[in-house]
Design a protein around this nucleic acid. Sequence first.
DNA 1: TATTGTTATACTCTATAACTATA
DNA 2: TATAGTTATAGAGTATAACAATA
Lengths: 160, 160
Amino acid sequence: MKQVKKTVKPDVQEPVHVSDKTLREFMGYNLKRSFNVIQSELIQILEPFGLRMVTYSTLVMIADNPGMRQSHLSDALSIERPNLVVIIDELERRELIMREQSKIDRRAFELRVTLAGKQLCEKATEANRQSEARLLKDIDPEIQKLMLQTLNKIEKSYDG
Amino acid sequence: MKQVKKTVKPDVQEPVHVSDKTLREFMGYNLKRSFNVIQSELIQILEPFGLRMVTYSTLVMIADNPGMRQSHLSDALSIERPNLVVIIDELERRELIMREQSKIDRRAFELRVTLAGKQLCEKATEANRQSEARLLKDIDPEIQKLMLQTLNKIEKSYDG
DNA sequence: TATTGTTATACTCTATAACTATA
DNA sequence: TATAGTTATAGAGTATAACAATA
């Protein structure tokens, strides 16, 4: 059984007055709500490419960092090493990436995208760009930039 | 076994140059990264109250909407009804909320917080406020306001 | 016939322990 | 002794189908 229900509900919304005013105070709640909308879109955009969010971001990271190792990827994407293995397996089985034993440390594997992987990655990324642009079309580009900066500031505020 | 590993990694970060430049283009990726930081904080803040994110938000919603039904709560928080049942069970067992059979529709239950539930809810909410204030202390309040507005605009852009 | 809450269940995601082969 | 990748497994979280009671 496939799972396609990661999408936000159709939300026909009966006229039932439910207030989330307390939760609305919080940045975290608002962040999650809007992320859910973007996530729903992204899942639909990636589906025709046979990619899930996690396989897509893994593919992109390998394309951006040729020769990187699974342990570094695990750190960068905050995916536990054991869970990354099956993701890498899937991408390798589809011949989108390759594992190559490192010559300087034979415990490790260097990861690289194949030509097909690079092409799929670029197509998916372009589709994402267009999808996000559509979603953010009514938001001033300057405000978008400010928002990205602020989000990074929040992210970096962890531990300093 | 409790699960306390929802926290973001200590991130001692060896000097390995890993770039996420392509993913950084995307609002969704940045949103998720900063949400993860807020989420880590929130989990730690709620833990002393014996609350998880989902039990907390459920409790808050019931406090804000006395008499509301499970089906409406399910819609509002995008939790499937069957999954909400066990959450409501847990809150009721702890005597933080009460189920009361509706007099106008005997299939339904009206949900209300108990005094203990109201008090716990208020304490947890205050702890959250302080935690978020700490996390956002270096971000101009005007920019925070703009950010909330923009997040809501993104959220509402789904289907319109 | 449809809806509310429920039970049972399955699938995905995420986390941990322990192994192997190297270092 | 420690690390990279792996295996197996357990635990959350989330999804669907089907039922009883009621509308």
